[in-house]
Design a binder for these strands. Sequence first.
DNA 1: GGCTTCGCCCGTCAAGCTCT
DNA 2: AGAGCTTGACGGGCGAAGCC
Length: 295
Amino acid sequence: MESMVEENGSAVDPLSAGSQSGDAAPAIATSVQSLNRTQQQTHHLVASTSIVQLTLPTSGATQVQSVIQPNQQSVIQTATNIQPVAISKGNVILVSKPNSVIQTAQASLQTLQDKNIKTAARKEIAFNDILLLLYFLIIQILSFWMQIFLNTHGRLPPLESSSECDSNVDSEVSSHSLHYQTGWLFFSSTYLSWLNAATAGGAIVQYAQGQDTQFFVPVSDNVPAYTGHGVVVEDAARKRELRLLKNRQAARECRRKKKEYIKCLENRVAILENRNQTLIEELKSLKQLCEPKTD
DNA sequence: GGCTTCGCCCGTCAAGCTCT
DNA sequence: AGAGCTTGACGGGCGAAGCC
């Protein structure tokens, strides 16, 4: 991943560069230097959402500076009171250096923390989207298969062990022209507890233990279209759900990138305004120096 | 307290673009 | 050509702030 940290005022366009590679994340203009420079360590810079996030070595102090570097032939001089900041792995950089172009107001600390919480919550929502889709598919398949079984047997499928089940269900299913693929998920009416566990970020799959009505649900990587009694059940709904899910995630990512881009532009504005002001002041001082003394 | 407005975020649709 | 991706546009939900 390429880092998109601005250095010396040259900004990187997060949309033009980041969107191409797909994994590059833009960062707010903040250059990072390790005090342990001799080791030539490459620090991994990640900017999820709008927050500069660094993945740094666990040891060693890290110095955070503004885009204005010291010892440079620039009209903008760096303040000398740079405070080394020890950064633990995965922490968020908050620039708070006096006289820096980039100032992190104290009030924005809370904002960043809130955004962290919101970002985490949205990631969980995205994860739950997948689980809900999975749940939706399972319920759909389950309902259809149960209906077929009920129509032909007048009862629910019996309680059977999973090892016996494969062949039994196979014959039942094939006799009813129910095409299915590999993988049988042992399913029961206790699936709600499984769902709760899954949506809570816990277990992915829990098999029921058979104290109540149990049945089997065909599950495959590609949920097939079923043919029962000559009626072809299209998987258009499944495709639509998948498309909506992907577009939902794409929209989130698009908005995130746009916000990053806007923040980057705002930062460039701040830098250029500061530089402009400094140049004006330097021009004034030079004019005063060049003016002939009149006294 | 109830209402209106505003800002923000989200999901969805559709059009354009890219890739295979 | 078609599938998939990206993004602008639109509408809805929700919370905060202001007004009565």
